[in-house]
Simulated assay, not measured.
Amino acid sequence: MLTCLCCGKQETEKMLLTDIVYFKKIVSANRCQMCHSKLVRLANEPTCLGCCRIKQDENDSCLDCVKWKQLYPKYAFSHTALFQYNLFLKEWLENFKYKGDYRLAKLFNQELTEYFNMKNQKNKQYIPIPISQTSMKLRGFNQVEELLASAGIPFHPALIHVGTGEKQSSKNRKERMESKQPFKLDENYCSQLKNQQIILIDDVYTTGRTLFHAAELLQQIGVATIETFSIAR
C-alpha cells in the first residue's frame, strides 16, 4: 500500500510483469496516480537540445541557449531535466525546500534511481549545487544533496557556496543573469575530479546561471566532460 507524500491518499501500487520476470528492484513512486498525472515528463515533449526547455518554435536551441553559446562557445551543452516546472512542482519545492517537509525528498526516488543507474552514467562523478551558509542555517539541509541521498545516489560535495546568501528566487531574470560567481572548489576534490566525467545537479533549471557558474570552475581544473541535470525545467 502506497501513501502519497503529497496529498496523503493511499493506493495499492501496481507491479509490472517485467519487474517480476527480471527480478527488477522495485522503487516506490511515493505518489498517487492523481498527483503523478500533474507531472509533465519532458522526455515525452519536444525540447531544446541544450537545456531541455519545451520548444517554443522549430529551432533546435532556444533563445537562452543561443545567448549562452555566445558566452561559452567551447562548452558542450547537455542538460537533462525530468519534468516541466509547473504549479505542482512549485508547491512541492515550497513545502520541501522552504517549509522543511523532509519527507518530500523521497518524491522522485524512482526517477533518480533509474536515471543515475543507467549504464552510461555509471562512471561519472555527481556534484550537487551547494547552498549558502545562510540558507543552511535557516533550512538545516541542502535540498539537492537530500534528494540524492534519499535515492541512494553517491555524490561529491566538491563545491562550496561563498556568495552573499541572497536567494535566487528573490531575484528577477536580469539580476540572476548578472549575478557574480558564488562558488569555489573544495581543494580536496580537485585532483580527484581532473579528467573525470561530471554531472552537475540542481533542483530547478531557471536561467542556467547557477549551473554555468559551477561549470566554469570545473573547466578550470581540467575535467573531461560536464553535463547538467535537474528535477525541473
Rank of each mutant, 00 (worst) to 15 (best):
residue 95 N to Y: 05
residue 180 K to R: 15
residue 123 N to F: 09
residue 125 Q to N: 14
residue 144 V to S: 06
residue 12 T to E: 15
residue 161 H to T: 00
residue 20 I to A: 12
residue 130 P to F: 04
residue 153 I to Q: 09
residue 157 P to A: 03
residue 128 P to K: 08
residue 131 I to H: 13
residue 213 H to L: 02
residue 220 Q to S: 09
residue 20 I to G: 12
residue 79 H to A: 05
residue 191 S to Y: 07
residue 5 L to G: 05
residue 103 R to S: 12
residue 50 G to Y: 06
residue 152 G to N: 12
residue 136 M to T: 06
residue 180 K to N: 13
residue 88 F to Y: 11
residue 87 L to E: 14
residue 131 I to G: 12
residue 195 N to D: 08
residue 205 Y to A: 01
residue 106 K to T: 00
residue 52 C to V: 01
residue 141 F to L: 05
residue 2 L to C: 11
residue 69 K to G: 10
residue 133 Q to F: 15
residue 176 R to M: 14
residue 164 T to S: 12
residue 59 N to Q: 15
residue 186 D to H: 08
residue 231 I to H: 14
residue 189 Y to N: 03
residue 91 E to V: 02
residue 9 K to P: 05
residue 14 K to S: 15
residue 61 S to P: 09
residue 70 Q to G: 10
residue 150 S to G: 02
residue 105 A to G: 09
residue 65 C to E: 01
residue 212 F to G: 04
residue 157 P to G: 04
residue 60 D to C: 04
residue 159 L to Q: 02
residue 99 K to W: 08
residue 122 K to T: 12
residue 198 I to Y: 08
residue 121 Q to C: 05
residue 27 V to S: 10
residue 203 D to Y: 09
residue 26 I to R: 12
residue 164 T to C: 06
residue 135 S to V: 03
residue 31 R to Q: 08
residue 70 Q to A: 13
residue 114 E to M: 11
residue 11 E to V: 04
residue 13 E to V: 08
residue 8 G to Y: 06
residue 2 L to G: 11
residue 74 K to Y: 15
residue 155 F to G: 07
residue 192 Q to K: 14
residue 118 M to I: 03
residue 220 Q to V: 03
residue 232 A to I: 01
residue 184 K to W: 12
residue 137 K to E: 07
residue 99 K to I: 03
residue 18 T to C: 14
residue 162 V to I: 10
residue 185 L to K: 15
residue 95 N to I: 05
residue 227 E to T: 07
residue 186 D to G: 10
residue 88 F to E: 05
residue 151 A to T: 01
residue 182 P to H: 03
residue 210 T to L: 05
residue 125 Q to G: 03
residue 156 H to Y: 14
residue 51 C to T: 00
residue 217 L to M: 09
residue 11 E to I: 07
residue 162 V to L: 07
residue 8 G to F: 11
residue 39 L to I: 07
residue 72 Y to W: 15
residue 33 Q to E: 11
residue 128 P to T: 02
residue 170 S to Y: 06
residue 47 T to A: 04
residue 120 N to A: 10
residue 4 C to L: 03
residue 129 I to K: 01
residue 161 H to K: 03
residue 73 P to M: 00
residue 185 L to T: 08
residue 141 F to N: 06
residue 189 Y to E: 01
residue 15 M to Y: 13
residue 44 N to S: 13
residue 51 C to K: 01
residue 170 S to Q: 08
residue 16 L to G: 15
residue 79 H to G: 05
residue 125 Q to K: 11
residue 177 M to F: 12
residue 55 K to L: 09
residue 209 R to Y: 06
residue 33 Q to S: 14
residue 195 N to Y: 10
residue 218 L to C: 07
residue 47 T to R: 05
residue 122 K to A: 11
residue 176 R to C: 13
residue 3 T to Y: 10
residue 46 P to D: 04
residue 130 P to C: 02
residue 124 K to N: 04
residue 228 T to S: 14
residue 117 N to I: 00
residue 126 Y to T: 07
residue 63 L to D: 14
